[in-house]
């Protein structure tokens, strides 16, 4: 039974709604109230669309396309906080530095890093990796040794493979002792691209 009244109820009263504008306002309010634990935004780079996640402590996750943004957000929700909102404006500092890096205007990153996704030995490995300068390379064995255990180069490899903030913590600068490229989360093509960008790989 459809009558005039039902038709009008279905039609509703027109109210425009823009999700993007709404979430921007919401994330601003949430941040002001101290309720935004993780903010994220994306950045188009020569290596594809990167997703940047920041907390009040700093950069917590940087991911390549193909790593599955939703899985990453899920992981961050479980391990840090589910209070996550899209808030590109809060990732501006990191995105600007990445832009500068890719266009050759920047060699070091000076954004604070939130290490909460990293545990134990992996943390020591990544901190050692963070000290490898732009344009140079190191080996799995050397970063393991820097991290306090020269024999744990396999564990070091695993730690680098699960680096939550690639590029900024330059795990691409770690190679096999024999000169082989080793592995890379974002794929070896990206590792080569970054090493060439830094002048550490010439071919």
């Amino acid at each position: 039974m459809t009558d005039e009244l039902e038709r009008r109820l279905r039609a509703g009263d027109a109210a425009a709604f823009e999700l993007e504008r709404f979430s921007r306002a919401l994330s601003q309010r949430a941040a002001d109230a101290g309720l935004l634990d993780v903010a994220y935004g994306s950045l188009d780079s020569p290596l594809g669309r990167l997703t940047v996640m920041v907390t009040p402590r700093g950069l917590v996750r940087l991911s390549y396309p193909g790593e599955g943004v939703n899985d990453q957000l899920d992981e961050v929700a479980t391990r840090i906080s589910p209070r996550i909102l899209r808030a590109p404006q809060r990732t501006d500092a990191v995105r600007r530095q990445l832009d500068d890096y890719f266009s050759g205007r920047r060699r070091t990153f000076d954004v604070p890093i939130d290490w909460r996704l990293v545990r134990g030995f992996a943390g020591a490995v990544l901190q050692a990796t963070a000290r490898i300068p732009f344009g140079s390379v190191s080996t799995y064995r050397d970063v393991a040794s820097e991290a306090g255990s020269a024999n744990a180069y396999r564990a070091a490899g695993n730690a680098l493979g699960s680096n939550p903030v690639p590029i900024v913590v330059p795990c691409h600068r770690v190679l096999h002792a024999g000169g082989g490229l080793g592995g890379y989360t974002g794929g070896l093509d990206r590792k080569r691209y970054l090493l060439r960008l830094e002048g550490a790989l010439v071919d």
């Binding site: 979430s23 957000l73 589910p82 209070r83």
Partner: peptide, 9 residues
């Protein structure tokens, strides 16, 4: 497990 709040929005 709770999904990221952003997905609810």
């Amino acid at each position: 497990h709770l999904p990221p709040f952003a997905s609810l929005v």
